[in-house]
Structure formats: C-alpha cells, structure tokens
Simulated assay, not measured.
Amino acid sequence: MRKNAERLLRQIANTESELQPPLWRELFGALGEDSWVRAPLFCEYGKSVRIGNHTFLNAGVTLLDGTAITIGNNVLVGPNVQFYGASHPVDHIERRDWTARWKPILVEDDVWIGGNAVICQGVTIGARAIVGAGAVVLKDVPPDTVVGGNPARIIRKLTDSER
C-alpha cells in the first residue's frame, strides 16, 4: 500500500489539477462527491483515509495514516494541516525499534481547520467546530466550539446565531 501511495502521489504531482480527481479516488479509501484536494499532499497509505462530500483539503496537508483518518462532509482544511495518527513510546529503549502506536482521528461534519494546525492521534473534532490556525489539538474538541493555541483549548462556544 505504501508503494502504491507513493506512485499515486508522484502521478498526482505531475498531473494538472482538473485531471487529478480520479487519482485521488484511487489513493483514498473514499473521496466524497464534490470534494477537492489540492496537491501537494503527503500520506503513507491513502486507503485508511476517508473524506466525505463537499470537503476541501488545501495544499500541503500531511496525513500519517497508519490508522483510520475520517474527515466528514462540508469540512474545510487549511494549508499545511497535519493529521498525526501515530505517536511513539515514551520509553527510549522501545523507540530505538521505531515502534509506533496508532489511534484513529475523526473530523465530524462542517468543521473548519485553519492553516498549520496539528491534529494528534485519537482526537475527535466535533461537528461545526473551528480549529484556529496553528493550533495543536491533543484532546477531543466538542461540537460548536472554537479552539486555538498550543496546546489547543476552548476559546468559546459558538452561539445559535453563528451556527
């Protein structure tokens, strides 16, 4: 799967953007209707990534996808956002073997993730949430909230009129 992903990513890089959608569909486990991905993008496997309908991934996205990364419908992902499904042990002896531990990432519907944000393993970002640019998200984000900072924290709840 890794070699296939590398091949497809090279092919995408050398293909005009209007002609890329079939290649993205071949790379990912799912790519919904009217969704758009801008190259360049990095992923390890591709098939563990599922993207819903009407979703946009801007250029420079990184997906460490040794586990499921699910991005819902109507999601906007800014440039250079990183999804880290992996981490490594705290114990330095275990790390010598490049041991990785994986936990899935879930981004629910109608989320906006600002540029250069980092979404860490095991995180769920609730529906309609906004992740500020440059945020490092280590914990679940409740629906209808704005988070930002490093580590990301809740800045405020979205009001009914804002939704």
Score class of each variant (00 low, 15 high):
Thr70Glu: 13
Thr70His: 07
Ile71Leu: 09
Ile71Met: 11
Ile71Ala: 09
Gly72Asp: 12
Gly72Val: 04
Asn73Glu: 11
Asn74Leu: 11
Val75Ser: 10
Val75Gly: 14
Val75Ala: 09
Leu76Lys: 11
Leu76Phe: 14
Val77Ser: 04
Val77Ile: 15
Val77His: 11
Val77Lys: 02
Gly78Asn: 08
Gly78Arg: 09
Gly78Pro: 04
Asn80His: 13
Asn80Ala: 09
Val81Trp: 08
Val81Tyr: 02
Val81Leu: 03
Gln82Lys: 12
Gln82His: 12
Gln82Pro: 06
Phe83Ile: 01
Phe83Ser: 04
Phe83Asp: 02
Tyr84Trp: 12
Gly85Trp: 00
Ala86Leu: 01
Ser87Asn: 12
Ser87Lys: 00
His88Ser: 11
His88Lys: 12
His88Gly: 05
Pro89Ala: 09
Pro89Phe: 02
Pro89Ile: 04
Val90Leu: 14
Asp91Arg: 03
Asp91Cys: 05
Asp91Trp: 08
Asp91Ala: 02
Asp91Glu: 06
His92Val: 15
Ile93Trp: 14
Ile93Cys: 06
Glu94Cys: 04
Arg95Val: 06
Arg96His: 13
Arg96Val: 13
Asp97Gly: 14
Asp97Lys: 15
Trp98Tyr: 13
Trp98Thr: 14
Trp98Arg: 14
Thr99Asn: 12
Thr99Ala: 13
Thr99Arg: 15
Thr99Val: 13
Arg101Asn: 14
Arg101Gln: 13
Trp102Ser: 02
Trp102Phe: 10
Trp102Met: 09
Pro104Tyr: 02
Ile105Phe: 01
Ile105Gly: 01
Ile105Thr: 01
Ile105Pro: 01
Leu106His: 15
Leu106Met: 14
Leu106Asp: 10
Leu106Arg: 15
Val107Tyr: 05
Val107Ala: 03
Val107Pro: 04
Val107Met: 06
Glu108Leu: 03
Glu108Ala: 06
Glu108Trp: 01
Asp109Asn: 11
Asp109Ile: 05
Asp110Arg: 12
Asp110Ile: 08
Val111His: 05
Val111Tyr: 05
Val111Phe: 05
Trp112Tyr: 07
Trp112Cys: 10
Ile113Gln: 08
Ile113Arg: 02
Gly114Asp: 05
Gly114Ala: 05
Gly114Tyr: 00
Gly114Trp: 01
Gly115Thr: 03
Asn116Pro: 07
Asn116Met: 09
Asn116Trp: 11
Asn116Gln: 10
Ala117Met: 06
Ala117Arg: 07
Ala117Trp: 06
Ala117His: 08
Ala117Tyr: 04
Val118Gln: 12
Val118Asn: 09
Val118Met: 10
Val118Leu: 07
Val118Phe: 01
Ile119Trp: 01
Cys120Thr: 13
Cys120Leu: 13
Cys120Gln: 10
Gln121Ala: 10
Gln121Ser: 07
Gln121His: 07
Gln121Met: 05
Gln121Thr: 00
Gln121Glu: 04
Gly122Tyr: 00
Gly122Val: 00
Gly122Cys: 02
Gly122Ser: 03
Gly122Leu: 00
Gly122Arg: 00
Val123Cys: 05
Thr124Gln: 01
Ile125Asp: 02
Ile125Arg: 00
Ile125Asn: 02
Ile125Met: 02
Gly126Tyr: 06
Ala127Pro: 03
Ala129Trp: 08
Ala129Lys: 10
Ala129Phe: 06
Ala129His: 08
